[in-house]
Design a protein around this nucleic acid. Sequence first.
DNA 1: CCATTATATGATTGATTAATCATATAATGC
DNA 2: GCATTATATGATTAATCAATCATATAATGG
Lengths: 103, 103
Amino acid sequence: MNKTHFRAEILKALGQPTRLKIIDFLRDGERCVCEIFPAIDEEQSNTSRHLNLMVSSGILFRRKEGVKIFYAVKHPEIFELVDLATLIMTQEINGRHKLLLAA
Amino acid sequence: MNKTHFRAEILKALGQPTRLKIIDFLRDGERCVCEIFPAIDEEQSNTSRHLNLMVSSGILFRRKEGVKIFYAVKHPEIFELVDLATLIMTQEINGRHKLLLAA
DNA sequence: CCATTATATGATTGATTAATCATATAATGC
DNA sequence: GCATTATATGATTAATCAATCATATAATGG
């Protein structure tokens, strides 16, 4: 895999609503699957798949403790990146609003 | 569309190799389609579709000049966001390398 | 040892995506 | 007005994706 594909994989892993909800829920630190899936209101199996995908693409890491598996965001820059997306979104919404007002 | 979906759409728009190549090529400023598609080595029609998608998701804007259409990145934060993805990628590669060395 | 709890995974389905070829549209210079 | 250049779009195809249901695995407490 070349670097463009690697970068794309990271961004793609973050560019999905269910996965973004997981990232947001993990802002306060690690959580086990049994906490995550009710919090984001998704099925356990679906949540598990998304968690695994994010581990594979370097977004999350996993820690086992007894029967529970805790997931956490691997790099603090992930949050910065997501926050930038939020900022861009806000600017977009404001820009569109201004256009509507000007029309 | 709610905010989670909006954020996801922005990240997803950036999380595709062909589109990342376009963003990289637009770092120096606006370019017309006829410059972009040879630079990234993709078909004109495919390039056009990706450009349109990024306009729709708020990543790029378009300016018409005669028969040419110039595209440019709409928010400087887009570059910051992509650069963060590159940083995360680098950390991942280094991390994996260290693990291999330690093993 | 068994029942329970936590997590992962196989199989399936419908939806979305990226790429391609062919063609349409639209501006320009002659 | 016509040929040329630049761009967009319809139709198609193969691939990937997200979600779901059912089931498997694995650790724990009693």
